[in-house]
Amino acid sequence: MLAAATFLVVLSAGCALAGSSATLTIHYEATPISEIALGDDYINLQVGSSVSGDEPTTYTASTTYDLTTNGFDGKLSGSIGDDVAGGLSLSAELTPPEGAVGCGEVVLGRSPVDLITGIAPTAAGGLGLTFRLTAGVEAGLVEPSHTLFTLTVTDR
């Protein structure tokens, strides 16, 4: 009986697999990417004359911005370095990339304000950026001035 059992074990061991397999691991990391650029280094907003009783006058100037991001639910926020003179209001409106939500025309100040929200991974160039400078009579004689506009992209 013991000999018969041994015979069967030998037969089973002879039926080994004829092939062999091995594994090759592929691994890569995609890091967070957020790149933004403005189409112009500066733009001019020319303030003209205003007459008492007239509606505030609005002056516009446009440029573009380019955006590449692989983040989800990102946003664009903008701020200016120095507040504009009294009686003036500077605002910005951005064309959102596909799938994102534009916040419309937003008044700019020294604290960042949201201009675009809900940005999904995107690579888009030449998107519109329009500045509007509104001057009321109370602005008086507006001296030439400049301010630095900063556009920032952040991920969720």
Partner: peptide, 12 residues
Amino acid sequence: VSDGPSMYSSDL
């Protein structure tokens, strides 16, 4: 960029 930031792995 559509893939998003992450670690990606697969075995051959």
